[in-house]
Amino acid sequence: MSVIYFLITISIVVAIFFLYAFIRAVRSGQFDDDYTPSVRMLFEDELKKETNKNQINITKEKQL
């Protein structure tokens, strides 16, 4: 039955790890602005599309 010491220790360690991760995230300012990142996330695709377009333009110019 002494396995219970082992299991509980593991569970607490895992929990402490998550607490540490949470505190680190707060400290780095992740929760200071809760709106902009949600919008910013959606931009990536648009940007890629645009760079593709540019690349196409460039290749076209090269062909000319």
Binding site: D32, D33, D34, Y35, T36, V39, R40, L42, F43, E46
Partner: peptide, 27 residues
């Protein structure tokens, strides 16, 4: 609006020397 965020985070395309820009919408 989101357009504002987008354009202000792409300032580096408009002027040489701007390395990065990030918007805090709430503030």
């Amino acid at each position: 609006c989101s357009s504002c965020i987008w354009i202000l985070e792409n300032l580096q395309k408009l002027q040489q020397g701007i390395i990065a820009s990030s918007v805090n919408f709430g503030e």
